[in-house]
């Protein structure tokens, strides 16, 4: 399938601060492509380059065959962008915001109503309300509508679900799937690793580099390590510190109530027995395959370790 977005060797620095280092990726029409990474990993910088807000120092990026550097004007007609924070006119009503952005693209609310209908029906009762007075979830829905109002070929969403309640988050992802079904390529950045599973493909970003890039299921399938999940009655942080000293434990992370320890699959049984013998008050969770978060945390820690050595 022809790719809608292609980036090759994208680099960007702000002074001595390196934001992106030779980034490569491509996304196909209708694909939901996720970028997972901590704050400062370079997600926003990458999105700003793809949306023509910033210029890269090196490399080439194309949106629907248009160069982000040369053809920025044409690109602006075919992308929808939703910034990390709410950036619509708070003093204008829901309807006025939508109309304004539709008109700016020489379109009307009616013309592409089909595309936003599912989202807009939820907003419609509040259409006379000032955008600033909407709830967080409603603001996100309005922003998505405004980004879609001109039926873009590519939708770029920078942390659309940050600070949104879990129910609204789920609704939001449902909306995105509807949009993707229309053949719109969606790039979405998120700091939430659990949202990775909702994407068709994900790229794990750290310090301006892509660590992993694949379908989420494939990333899990390819994960070469085993995970031990345990719980303690005693001090969790103390136990984590102790476990991290074990040479066999390759990564140890706290997952809410539980602790995840990754190791070579071959020694999983041995390590489990060793931990059980050394510590009291520990209960092991039943056998479970590694999740996407285990994979990401492991890869990020490994990249970190390389950096430091």
């Amino acid at each position: 399938m022809e790719n809608n977005i292609r980036a090759a060797g994208i680099s960007k620095s702000f002074g001595s601060q390196v934001a992106l280092q030779e980034l490569d990726f491509a996304a196909a029409p209708g694909e939901i492509f996720g970028f997972i990474g901590a704050d400062g990993a370079g997600k926003t910088t990458l999105f700003k380059i793809l949306t023509t807000l910033l210029r890269q120092d090196a490399g080439k990026a194309e949106v629907c065959g248009l160069d982000t550097d040369k053809d920025f004007r044409e690109i602006r007609r075919i992308i929808g962008y939703m910034a990390g924070r709410f950036s619509l006119y708070g003093d204008l009503s829901v309807e006025e915001n939508l109309k304004f952005f539709a008109q700016v693209f020489d379109s009307t609310l009616q013309e592409n109503y089909e595309l936003i209908r599912d989202i807009y029906v939820l907003l419609e009762p509040f259409k006379k309300r000032r955008a600033a007075d909407l709830s967080g979830g409603m603001k996100q829905k309005l922003a998505l509508c405004c980004a879609l109002i001109h039926k873009p070929k590519v939708l770029v969403l920078d942390e659309p679900t940050t600070g949104v309640d879990p129910v609204s988050r789920r609704e939001f992802w449902d909306n995105l799937k509807t949009v993707a079904a229309e053949g719109i390529t969606t790039l979405v950045a998120t700091p939430y690793m659990d949202e990775a599973m909702q994407c068709d493909r994900v790229a794990l970003l750290q310090e301006g580099r892509i660590l992993q890039i694949d379908r989420p299921a494939q990333i899990i399938a390819d994960f070469p390590k085993a995970v031990i999940i345990l719980k303690t009655e005693h001090n969790r942080n103390q136990l984590i510190r102790k476990l991290r000293k074990l040479p066999e434990a390759e990564s140890v992370f706290s997952f809410g109530e539980t602790i995840h320890v990754t190791c070579e699959p071959a020694i999983k049984g041995k390590l489990t027995a060793a931990i059980a013998a050394a510590e009291s008050g520990i209960s092991f969770q039943p056998e479970q395959a590694a999740g996407i978060e285990d994979c990401f945390l492991y890869y990020m820690q490994r990249a970190d370790g390389r950096e430091n050595n």
């Binding site: 949306t51 807000l53 602006r76 007609r77 962008y81 950036s87 006119y89 693209f105 020489d106 405004c146």
Partner: peptide
């Protein structure tokens, strides 16, 4: 300051 400038900048304006 409120970020609408950026939103405007990705439109054909």
């Amino acid at each position: 300051e409120i970020g609408t400038q950026e939103q405007i900048n990705v439109t054909p304006i």
